[in-house]
Design a binder for these strands. Sequence first.
RNA 1: GGUCGCGUAGCUCAGCUGGAUAGAGCAUCUGCCUUCUAAGCAGACGGUCGAAGGUUCGAAUCCUUCCGCGAUCACCA
Length: 600
Amino acid sequence: MQAEKPRYMSLQNVISQSVSKAVRDLYQLELPTVEFQPTRKDFEGDITVVVFPMLRFVKGNPVEIGTKIGEYLVEHVDEVAKFNVVKGFLNLVIEDVIYLNFFNTIRDEADYGYVKSPTSDAVMVEYSSPNTNKPLHLGHIRNNLLGYSVSEILKAAGKKVYKTQIINDRGIHICKSMLAWQKFGDGETPETSGLKGDHLVGKYYVAFDQAYKAQIAELVDSGTSKEQAEKEAPILLEAQEMLRKWESGEVATVTLWKTMNSWVYDGFDTTYKNLGVDFDTLYYESDTYLLGRNVVKDGLEKGIFFKKPDGSVWIDLTEEGLDEKIVLRSDGTAVYMTQDIGTAIQRVTDHPDINGLVYTVGNEQDYHFKVLFLILKKLGYQWAQHLYHLSYGMVDLPSGKMKSREGTVVDADDLIANMEETAEEISKELGKLDGYSETEKKQLYRTIGLGALKYYILKVDPKKRILFNPEESVDFQGNTGPFIQYTYARIQSILRKAGDVGSSEVATSLGLHEKEKELLKQVQLFPETVQLAAENYSPALIANYTYDLVKEFNSFYQQVSILGEPNEDKKHLRVQLSRKVGEVIASAFRLLGIHVPDRM
RNA sequence: GGUCGCGUAGCUCAGCUGGAUAGAGCAUCUGCCUUCUAAGCAGACGGUCGAAGGUUCGAAUCCUUCCGCGAUCACCA
C-alpha cells in the first residue's frame, strides 16, 4: 500500500521536518523520528509532538525542550499559530487557513479518499462458499458482509479485486438432501411448494437427519452399539451409495443433482441480491475436487512431500512447529487440502494478474490455512507470499452454537425480512415520510433495515466472535447504521433547502468555528483510514471512522446554524462542508455495502 | 495435553506502530423541539483494562507465568 501521499496530507510531514530542523538548529542534533498524536480534546491544539522520545538524544527537561521547540515553530513555520506544553507534550495549534486550503483541494474531488489508479496486480477475494444442501444463515451473513466489504475496501485502496466463491456443490451432504427428497419428497418442487429453492432442499436435509436418527435409535434398541449404528444406518449407506453413483456419473443421479442444485442456486441468488453482495467469478467444487493431485505428484518428486508405506502422501511440517499433514489418501484420492492447493493454482492460471488471495473463512479453519499457505510457499509460487486468511469469529446465539440440523439457526432470509419490518415500524412511528410512495417507502425500509444489520456486524473487529440475541433486535439508535444514515438524510435536507449553491471555493480568510475545524480534521482522516482498513482487512475501522465523523457532524449541526448564518462566506463554507461530509459518509458506507437515504 | 484466538463500565463495543485524567453506544437519571429532520444534542452515573510478575521516563497496548472462555490438533469439509 504505497499510495502516494496527497499534498494536503503533508501537514504531518511539514511539522515533522520542522521539528527536526528545530532540534538541529537549537541543539545541533539529528532526530531519527518525530512522534505525533492528535491533540486530546481537553487540551488546546490540533497536533501534539511527544517530547519524551527525544530525551534520549537531547538532554534536559522535557517542558523546557518542548517550549523551545514550540517557540521556534511559531516563529519559523507558517502552519503553526500557537503552542502550549503540558508535561512532555507539545501541543500545536494549526492556522485555520491550512484547513481551509485543504478543504479547497478536496472540495470538488469525486470519490475523495479512494485511490483512483489501481495497481496492475490483482487480488482475489473468496467469500461465502456455501454448501448447496441448506439455506444461508447468520454465519454466512457475517462471512458475506466481511468478504464483500473487504473487497470494496481493497478496491478503494487501489487494488484490482476479483470476488469469488467456491460452491461446495458435491459430496455426501447434498446426497443426503437428494436421497431424502427421493424418499419423502413426493415430487415436490419450489413451484409446487411455494418454497424458496434453498429452503426446500434444506427441508430435506433436515428430513434426512431425522430419519437417520430414528434408524440409529431403532438399531440401538435392537442391541447394536451406538457407534456401529451411526455407521450402519441403512439410509446413510444409501446416501454413500448415491455419492458413488454420482462420482461414476450415473445419469439419473447426476440429473437429480443438477435439478436440486439449480433450485438452491435460485434461492442463493435471491439472498445475495437482497444482501447486496456479488461475485465476479465462480468456482464449483464439482469442477475442482480432482485438482491438486498432479501438483502433489510433482511435489513428491521434488521431495516436498513424502509417501508412507500404505501409499498415502504427507508433508512434514514439524520444523515449522506444525504436524504432519496428509495430502493424498492411500487410495490416491484428494482430501480438502489437496483441492485447495489445486484451486489456488487454478485461480492464478485463470487470472494471471493475481498476486495474492484472500480467504474469508471462519477461525475454526485457522490451522488449515496456515498449512495451506505453507505448502503453497514450499511449492515455490511467487504469489504465495501474499495469501491472507480473513479469519473471523463465529456468530453465536445466547443458546450457544448454531446448528442447522437442529434448527437452531437464524435464517438469513428471515433475518433480513425482520430487519425490514423493524425499520418499517420505527419509520411509521416517527412518521416523517409524507409524500413518499409505497414503493419508495418499501425501498427505504430495506435500506434502513439492512443498514442496521450490516453495520451491527461490520463494526465489530472481524476476529472477535459475535453474540447475537434475536430477542433484542439490532439497535437503531446510538452507534448504529440508521444513526449514520439519519445524519446523511439530514445533510441532504439541508442541501435541498440551500438550493443550487454550486461548489465554488470557500474563502480562506475566515476564522474557523471550533466545530468546523474538528469536522475538517475528521474529514482529513478519511484517506488514511481507507488505507489502514485495507492493510488490516478490517471494515470495522471504516465503521468506527464513520461513526466519529457523524458524531462530530451532529455536534456541529446542533451548535452552529448553517442556513441561518448571515455571513455569506461562512454560510457557503458550512453548506459545502456539510455536502462533503455527506459524500464521505456515502463513500464510507459504500465500502461497507450500506446504502444511504435522502430522507428518513 | 500441544497450538491459536479472545478476556476493557451492568450489556454491546472503540482504544493505530507503547504516551497525557482509559473512550463511545445501550440501559438508568437530568436538561434541550415557535430556528436547518429529537433515529438528534448537552450532561450525570458507571472501570482493580481477567490475575500476578517483568521491560520502560511511561503499559489496556510489548514479554513471561497463571486463570476463564472458544477454536483446532481426522485417510471430514
